[in-house]
Every structure is written in structure tokens, then in C-alpha cells.
Amino acid sequence: MEESLLRSPIPRNLVGVLGVEPQTISQAAAFTEAFLASSVQHPERHDVKNMLTHKAVILSYARPKKEKTKSKKAKGLNARQKRAMKVFQIKPEQQKYELFLPLHQLWRQYIVDLCGGLKPTSNPQILQQKLLKADLHGAIITVVRSRCPSYVGSTGILVQEFKHVFKIITREDKLKVIPKRNSVFSVEINGFVSHVYGNKFEQRASERSAKKFKVKGTIDL
């Protein structure tokens, strides 16, 4: 039935549109063959007469090209530009212990929420693991051991942490830079004391969340 429709004479109303005179079946077949040859991609690679025996014929089709839009990312300052602009420098008039006490109070609440509430029955090892991965900005840290004796006993609010050093503001309103290497620090919160071994802690604050720490550390002093 479908083949008879394909080879049937072209209707009179399409004669002018197609530009052929459909008087015989052979002319209709010739037109179909010519139309198919002009429509398929790479007709020299196909046997057009053989294709007419199939039920379905794939004609040429070109998908519309999508315009590629380049996303513009905001460029931040590099390390050299930050140093030139003194982004990380704390001005002398800002080196006041009292100015950072509100930050310390926020940090205490942050740690309590992180640990699900600090209770006497809490597991100290679990609390220490959470504390070591937490953000320590605002914590009061104390140097309990160090290869350099002058650092021992230094205590203050941690205001800046870098990969190799801590910067703290002491109660005497002094900014001290304490190297992490060869030092042991203590952090106290609601009666719980955790020790941080600097040699195992030489990372940026943003990198500690994915690091696994040992509960017991060692240091060569």
C-alpha cells in the first residue's frame, strides 16, 4: 500500500510547485529518485535505487549550532598583590586584646555547637578530633612546649593562622608570631584541654577539615 502511494501520480495542484508533469508512473519514479539523490548526504556513497526499496529514508538534516557563551569569572588578588596591599597586616592601633574578646566569645559558642554541647560525660578523644579540625580563629591558645624557650608560656587570642605560624594578641596588647614547628599548643574550652602538635599541624585552616589527626602526637624538642 505504501509503495503504491509513493509511486502514484503527483496531484495536479502540486504540478506547478514541483515543476514536473506527472503523466506516467515512470516519471513519478524518476522524480522520486532525483529528489532522493539531492536530499541525502553524500549521494555518491549510496545506491539510490537500492534505498528506494527500504521503508524509511533519512534525508539530510543539519542541527542548529549552539552559541558558546564564555562565563567570566571574577579574578581575585594574587598573593603578591595581597602582600603589596598589606591585606593581612594588623595595624598597631588594632592590636588590642579587648577588641578580639567578642571574637573569642563567638568561637566558644561555635565550639559548643560543633561538639553538640560539652558535657562531663563527653568522650575527650572525640572532642579533641573535632577541635583539631575546627577553625581556631578566636581561640585562646598557649605555648606549653617549644624548642625555643622564649615562646613557652605565651598565650593570647588567635587572630591569624597561616600554614607555618600562628599570630596571637596577648593580654599585654602585643602581637606575637609563633611558629608551629617544634611547638606544642594547648586550647582550653569549658574545662576541656586539647593539645596541638605544631609539627603535625602545618596546614592552612581551610585544609584541616579533610585531614586525619592522631589523638597522640610526638614532637622532637
Results as ranks from 00 to 15, higher is better:
V57W: 11
L77T: 09
K163H: 12
Q23I: 14
S71R: 13
L114V: 02
S60P: 06
I168Q: 08
K119D: 07
Q105E: 15
P9E: 03
E33L: 14
L114W: 02
Y151D: 06
T170I: 03
K70R: 15
Q129F: 11
Y110M: 03
S194R: 10
A62M: 01
R45C: 11
Q160H: 12
K73V: 04
T155I: 09
K91T: 05
H195L: 14
K65E: 05
A34I: 11
H104N: 11
S71W: 09
S209Y: 09
I178C: 14
P120Y: 06
S206C: 14
L18V: 15
L103V: 06
A62P: 00
L18K: 13
S39D: 13
K55F: 12
L221E: 01
W107H: 03
S4I: 07
E93H: 12
I168N: 08
P43R: 01
I25N: 02
M51W: 01
E202M: 10
R204D: 03
Q105D: 13
P92R: 01
T170D: 02
F213H: 07
K167N: 06
C115V: 12
L114M: 11
L18T: 12
S206V: 13
D113L: 08
S146K: 07
Q89D: 02
D135P: 06
K75G: 05
S38H: 15
R7F: 09
A34V: 10
F192D: 02
K119N: 07
I111W: 05
N199R: 07
K49D: 03
H137G: 06
A28N: 12
A28R: 15
V57R: 12
E98P: 02
Q125H: 06
S122W: 09
K73L: 05
N78Y: 04
R181D: 03
T24F: 13
A30P: 04
L106V: 10
L106N: 11
H164L: 14
I140N: 13
S209K: 15
Q128V: 01
S154H: 04
I168G: 09
G191Q: 09
N78S: 09
A30W: 12
W107A: 00
S122H: 10
S183P: 09
T121S: 15
A34H: 12
A134L: 08
P120K: 06
N190E: 15
H54T: 06
K216F: 04
I25P: 04
A84G: 02
L158T: 00
I10E: 04
